[in-house]
């Protein structure tokens, strides 16, 4: 595949630098197709920011500082619905991103030997896609911080640039809401949800979440139904997961 630059890394003997340029560019090249597939999300993110009444600076700085697609979409949906409670948005962000804990935990054994500042920088770029890429790299070869950095930088730049482009393009669509363009978000989330429904625990988590969310949306104030549905459904999914595990 991209084998050309690999042998260079081997020639460096013992005081091995952590970030090899060859490994970095390998990461950039390998992550390019996946990074490009994220462009529509970034564009949507920019358009959404505009739709819910955020300024260019606010929308782009969210992509620069937070760099988490799902959390950004969801917080903008909440802001659009008039929810500006700091604690509610930050708590929801925390819940949405809890999966990073798991990704971080599985990378911890590989990253433990790196200096702490480098670990801290690499952690910022830990998103679903870069995680998938670095785990694949570990599977086929070995862990490489340079490779991980290449994936991270590539993804980050594409995400921020496509968000900015989305804000500019969004300005040319007259009143997006009147055309039902707010449907873009449920459609986008649907495309992320469906592939997750692969076994019994995930079906049950989905059904429980749907029921609790609808009941909560009808009878609870604000958007607390999101957190309550999430806690209830993931607990049910986790419980069933445990049942299946002990049966085997």
């Amino acid at each position: 595949m991209w084998g050309a630059g690999v042998s260079i890394a081997k020639t460096h003997a013992k005081p091995e630098p952590y970030l090899l340029a060859g490994e970095f560019w390998q990461g950039v090249r390998d992550s390019l197709p996946v990074a490009l597939s994220v462009v529509p999300f970034g564009l949507t993110c920019g358009v959404m920011g505009l739709t819910v009444g955020l300024t260019f600076l606010e929308t782009v700085s969210m992509s620069v500082l937070v760099f988490a697609g799902a959390a950004q979409f969801i917080s903008m949906t909440m802001l659009g619905a008039g929810i500006t409670a700091f604690s509610l948005i930050v708590l929801t962000t925390l819940l949405i991103n809890l999966r990073h804990l798991l990704m971080g935990a599985s990378l911890a054994p590989y990253m433990a030997r790196l200096p702490m500042p480098l670990q801290a920088v690499l952690a910022f770029g830990l998103v679903d896609e870069t995680y998938a890429l670095i785990m694949n790299r570990i599977l086929v070869k070995e862990y490489s911080p340079g490779y991980q950095m290449g994936c991270n930088v590539n993804f980050y730049l594409v995400w921020v640039a496509s968000t900015a482009a989305g804000v500019f393009l969004g300005g040319y669509i007259p009143d997006p809401l009147a055309w039902g363009l707010d449907f873009a978000l449920p459609a986008l989330l649907m495309a992320l949800l469906i592939p997750r429904l692969a076994d019994r625990p995930s079906y049950f988590a989905c059904v429980v979440s749907a029921l609790v969310a609808v009941l909560g949306a009808l009878y609870l104030p604000g958007k607390w139904y999101i957190i309550i549905a999430c806690l209830a459904a993931s607990a049910v999914g986790g419980f069933m997961e445990g049942e299946c595990g002990s049966a085997r």
């Binding site: 809890l98 989905c206 549905a229 459904a233 993931s234 997961e241």
Partner: peptide, 9 residues
């Protein structure tokens, strides 16, 4: 944690 994304989506 495994089912948090499914639940929230």
């Amino acid at each position: 944690l495994k089912h948090v994304p499914t639940a929230i989506l």
